[in-house]
Every structure is written in structure tokens, then in C-alpha cells.
Nucleic acid binder design. Structure first.
Lengths: 205, 205, 205, 205
DNA sequence: AATGAATGAGTCTTCATTCAT
DNA sequence: AATGAATGAAGACTCATTCAT
């Protein structure tokens, strides 16, 4: 009772506490699904009492939204990092994006699950719709610029915006498919699918 | 009270009544989402009393499953029809598939919504997982054969199974994206995205 | 299990069921107070399951409102009846009103409790405020007309509307006082207080 | 941080802090009602942290009780003051009582609200019942003595205790009515009602 | 066969109180 | 002494299912 490091610590760090709840929400979404998550599940997973959720968030819905936002931010950050590491060549950057979209360890199963949950529920929730829209829109525009540059570099005729749309939803379809049925799609296969799409465009003789 | 010939609802045909409930379920899923559908919503939409659902189905879950199966069957049927009409050429068939996947009137918004609901929930429901698996697996194999034949015809080197996987999940990603945020993706754009994917593979100079 | 008359009857009469819930609400308000009543209390008192309250009423609040309305209607009815029986003389009718306001069996303790609950909560609930206003307004106007006629009959100068206001709130004050502290105020004393008020006005030598 | 002379809130005077909490409770009762007051409401209104309520009072209930007592004491004090100023004549003192019962500035709306809250809840709370009883009893006895003397002075036959009971509950009924529906009863009308009651008794020709 | 009344389990939220700092 | 984070009990509501008619 004296040397106990955590447990009962009544962490004085509100941000750490919030983060713990968000992490628990992410894990819970991955394990039992966005729609079956309960505040009890989350609080038990977090090792935090039920009532504290109301302390830090407006309610269960807001917590879940924060969880999704957090996941999206992490996906974005890890992808950007990988893209930066690929250098300046636009095609190289696109390949790096494809690899990062399914690459360990930055991109976890939990990430895919939460995204699938977002995609699968956005159609019926204004908040999720907006979030989904904002997230993809920014990403898509960045990709469109990459495709544009890549096409110019390689001297290929290309509708860059359409290519970006195709690319993003191919990624999304693979994420969703992976979450829905992991026997058919693996991290490896998904990456291959994405890469062959780029191959089809850029590896023309 | 006894000679009433046809009150419309008082259908004596159990199958017609089941179908009415299934249709109501499909509509309800499209309108308020798979997870927010209630038996009351469905029975009101169908104009059938709440309690009757228990007579025809084991419960709400089974009704929803039937609804998803029905939608999948309709999608499959309309797609097959379009493909048959495209003649024998494998490439033509693939293009027909792409067009049918987003083509009116066979492919309705309700269809996309239900599929998005299936994809977005399959990860956390054994029944949906299995259904999802069966549906895609058969479809994917047929597409793989088409890609195989198409590659041979055109003299292209191609991992047919990977192409089929890519193709199906591009379609799925576009469906899901369309349902999640219809401001960005339209029927037209989705179709274009799909077609340009095929273009990238087959329209090489 | 076969001759049981009620209990498990699953009464097919919705109105009777609603009334049973309203009665239970009235009793519960009397016993544990308007603000401490729970849906469990009411449903247990009524011998009806918790969930049925949502079936018949929009929620707990509406049920309580209905209970208050019912009590008000009963008070009004029994008072009107007593007044009618007093004949045509306005003064006699006023005395009858005073007596009816505290007279058994029409006017029960539960009635007083519910009214006290209404009066004590109306200030902070729009719904109760409006109900309270409507109830007293009609009653006060009728009394004002009586005071008017009585003053004319007896040749007394009187602000009839002020007298009606005084009279109604004297009654209310006595009800509230009786509910709040029954050791000091009895049905008998309350009636006497009301009657001496009328005496002071009309029994002038 | 140490020499800060008077930050306003950082009052080192426990009594001042208790008083601040009590005042906040009074205000809160007036604004949102006795039963809807929360410790958060009070502490925010007082500008004092939530947890401190437990330091100064046994709990929320005791704080509310103190608030009611404080209000009662203030009402008593201001009334006694007004009565004293009315001289020795018993009738004059009664009229002064009536006026003081609705007179600015001593008698505020918050006072009426708290009293209405007391009256409307006393029936279901032993603590409030007792407080209510003690408060009215002493007051009623003083009034009874006044009525007694007034009757003797004016040579009127009068049940002084009954008159006092009538008087007190007329006042209470007007308070409660004012709080419950201020559109019908104003300070002015309430006072008039009280005064005409005294008129009816004492202004006999 | 068909209805909708009835049930009760499950969930979110509110809130008074406690307690580590 | 003072704070506000943390807890958990309690209550209202929703809803799938059951069942008497």
C-alpha cells in the first residue's frame, strides 16, 4: 500500500487520465465494436471509474469521437513521417504512402478497426460524417498534389484528383475488408494490392 | 371482417409478409443505420405489428441478417445480368462489372447503405463475418478468373487474384465512402474511379 | 393460480392501466413527496412493471403532471358538487366552498399533498407553472363572481376580485400548512379559519 | 502568494465563507428550486470549491437547512423591526406585520422562494417539518397575543388563536402563490389581500 | 394468424461524497 | 485550509422479447 507505483495513484495528471480513457476507448472499439462499446467497458478497460468519463468528456459519444480523432491523428502522423523519409520524388512518396498505410508498427490493428468503425458509421451520424469528411478531404488533396507532380515527372496523362480518390478508397476498402474478414486480407496482401495499383499507373514501359 | 378481400396489409401470404419486413429492414438500415434500427422502426415502416417479427424471424438480428442477404443477392443478380450482357470478352466483362457496381437502377443507395453497414459491422459479429466472407469469396473468385482470362487475352502479366482483391475492395471502399460522405463521392465519380483502375491495367499503349 | 381475479391479469384495458399508474403516482407523491418519487416507486405501488410507464406516458414527468391534473380535476368536481348543493344564494355558496375545501371524503389528504406539491414546485417548472396558473385562474374567476353577487345581495362594498384572491390563497396556505405540519392544522381548524374569514366579511352586524 | 492582502475569495474567515455558501444556497434555491439545487450550483455561485462544502457543513442537506434558517431569521428580524416601529397599538402592529410581510427591501423574492421551498417540502422531510413547525409556532403565538389585545382594545369578540392561524396561512398562501405564479400575484396585491383581511375584522363600523 | 400490451434487462447520466495533494 | 479529481450509487429511459387475447 506504500510502494504501489500505480493503482490507486489517483493520478493528478488530468491529461494522462483523459488519454487513458481515450486509449481504453480505442481498445474497446477494436475489441467489441463501435456500437457495442459501453461506458462500463471503457472504464473497466481503463481501470477508471465510470463516473469520471462525465468529468472529462461531455458523454460517451464525445469520448468515442475523441478516440476516433486520436486514431486519425496517429495514422496521419505516422504516414507523414514515412512519406517525409521517402525523399522528394513524388512517385517514391506515393509508394511510401501505400506502404505506410499498412505498415507496422505505426499502423496497428486497432487503428484499422477504429477507422472501419468510423467509415461504417459515418453515414448515420452527423458528427462522424463531418469528421470523416475533414479527414479524407485534407489527405486527398495532398495525394492529388503528389499524383499531379508524379504524372508531370513521368510524363503521364492523369486525372490527379480522380487518382487520389481511387487511391484513398482503395486503401479504405482494404482497411475495412481487413477488419471485416482478416482471413482473406492480410497486412501483406493489402499492401501488395495498393502497390500494384501504383505499379499499374507508373510502371508502364 | 371476414370477407375483406384485400386490405393490402392483411396479406394472407406469409412469404409476402416476410418480404415486406425484409424490405422495411433494408429501408430502415439505409435511413437510420444498422445499429440504430429498432424493431419498432421496422414494423412501423412495414405497417406490420411489432410482435409479428417474432413469428417470422428468430429475432431482430436474424431479420437484419436476412435483409443483408437479400441486398447481397440483388447486387449479385443485377451485376451478373450486366456482365452477361457484355458478351464473352473478359475485359468487356470487367468493365461491365465496374459500371454495374455503381449503375442505376439496379444498384440503389439502399444497396450501398446496407453493404456499408455489413462491411462496417462484420468485424464484430460472427454471423456478419461469415456472410461477408462467403459473399466476397465467391465474387472474388469469379473476378479472378475474369482477370486471368483478360490478362491472357491481352498478353499482360498479372497476378489475377491480387487484381481481383484490389478490384473488389476498391469497389467496397467507394461504396463505403459514398455512404459515409456523399458530398465527395458520387455515383459518377465512383464509377470513373473504378474504370480508370481497369484502364491503368488494360489500356496500356 | 386459476381463480386469481386480478394479478397477472395483464389487464386489456389501457385506460384502467393508465389510471392505475396515475393513482399510484398520486399515492406516491403523498407518501414520499413529488421530488423523491421514482418510477420504481410508482410502478411498485401500481403493481405494474417499470417499463410500462414509458408505454403510456412520455416519461416520469408527464405521469406526474397527469397525476396533478387528475387531483385538480377531482378537487374541482367535488367542490362544484358541494357548491351546487348549496342552492343559489351566493353567500351560501361561498360557505359551501369553504367547507368543501376541507371536507371529507371528497377532499383527501392525498389531494392536499399533491396540491402542496404543485404549489411548492410550480415556481421552478414551466409545466407546473402553467398548470397552476390555469387551475387557479378559472377557480378564482368563479369565486370573484360569487363574491360580487354576495356583496350586492348583502349591500356590502367589496373588491370582489381581491376577495377571491384572498380566499383562494387562504385555502392554499391552509392546505400547504396542513401538509407541512399536521400537528398544528387539522381539517377542522382549517375549515374554521376559512369560515371565520367569510364571517368577518359577511356576518357584520 | 503569501502577502496577497485580500483576494476577495481567499477569505481567511471561516464564518464569512460559511455565510457566502449560505447566501449562494439561498440564491440557488430561488433560481433553480430547492430540489434541483446541486452542490456544484452552490459552490459555483459562491465561487468556492466544491469540496469545501463538506468542511463547513455536514453535507448538502445541512447547508440547505442552514439557508432556510437564515432566511427565516431574516424575515423574522425585518418583521419585528417593522412591528416595533409601529408603536404600541396592537391593531397598528398587525397592519405593520401585514405590510412587512410583503415589503421591500427587507422581504426579497429570494425570501419568498426559500419559504415556498420550505413550505412545499416540509411535509416530506423530518428536518424541514420541525423547522417549519418551530418557526410558525413562535410567530403564531406572538400574533395570537396581538390579536387578543387588539380584540380587547376594539371590543370585538375574536378567537385570537384562530385569527392568528388564518393570518399566518393567508400570508403563506400568498407567498407560495406569488412564487408559483407571479403573473397573478404581485407584492402589491398580496399586501392588499392581507390588509383587507385585517380590515374585515377591525374596520367594522 | 395477428396484435400490441407487458416485461425487465441493460445503459447512460447525474450527483453527493470522499480523498490525495 | 483548500482544491477538484475520483468514486459509485441511484435513477430514467430504451428496447428486444414474450404472451394473453
Amino acid at each position: 500500500m506504500s510502494v504501489k507505483p500505480a493503482e490507486g495513484t489517483r493520478s493528478r495528471d488530468p491529461e494522462a487520465r483523459k488519454r487513458k480513457l481515450i486509449d481504453a476507448a480505442i481498445v474497446s472499439i477494436g475489441e467489441i465494436g463501435y456500437n457495442d462499446v459501453t461506458v462500463d467497458t471503457i472504464s473497466e478497460t481503463a481501470g477508471i471509474s465510470r463516473g469520471l468519463i462525465g468529468h472529462y468528456f461531455k458523454g460517451k459519444d464525445q469520448l468515442l469521437l475523441e478516440a476516433v480523432k486520436t486514431v486519425a491523428a496517429e495514422i496521419g502522423a505516422s504516414t507523414r513521417k514515412a512519406v517525409s523519409a521517402a525523399g522528394e520524388d513524388a512517385v517514391a512518396r506515393l509508394y511510401a504512402t501505400a506502404r505506410a498505410s499498412f505498415g507496422k508498427p505505426a499502423f496497428t490493428e486497432a487503428h484499422a478497426c477504429v477507422w472501419a468503425a468510423l467509415a461504417g458509421n459515418a453515414g448515420w451520424s452527423p458528427e462522424l460524417t463531418q469528421l470523416y469528411h475533414e479527414l479524407w478531404t485534407g489527405y486527398r488533396e495532398a495525394l492529388a498534389r503528389l499524383f499531379e507532380r508524379a504524372a508531370q515527372t513521368r510524363g503521364i496523362a492523369l486525372d490527379a484528383r480522380l487518382a487520389a480518390l481511387t487511391f484513398t478508397h482503395l486503401i479504405e476498402g482494404l482497411w475495412v475488408g481487413w477488419v471485416a474478414d482478416s482471413t482473406e486480407i492480410s497486412r501483406q496482401r493489402a499492401e501488395s494490392a495498393c502497390l500494384t495499383y501504383l505499379d499499374a499507373i507508373f510502371k508502364q514501359p
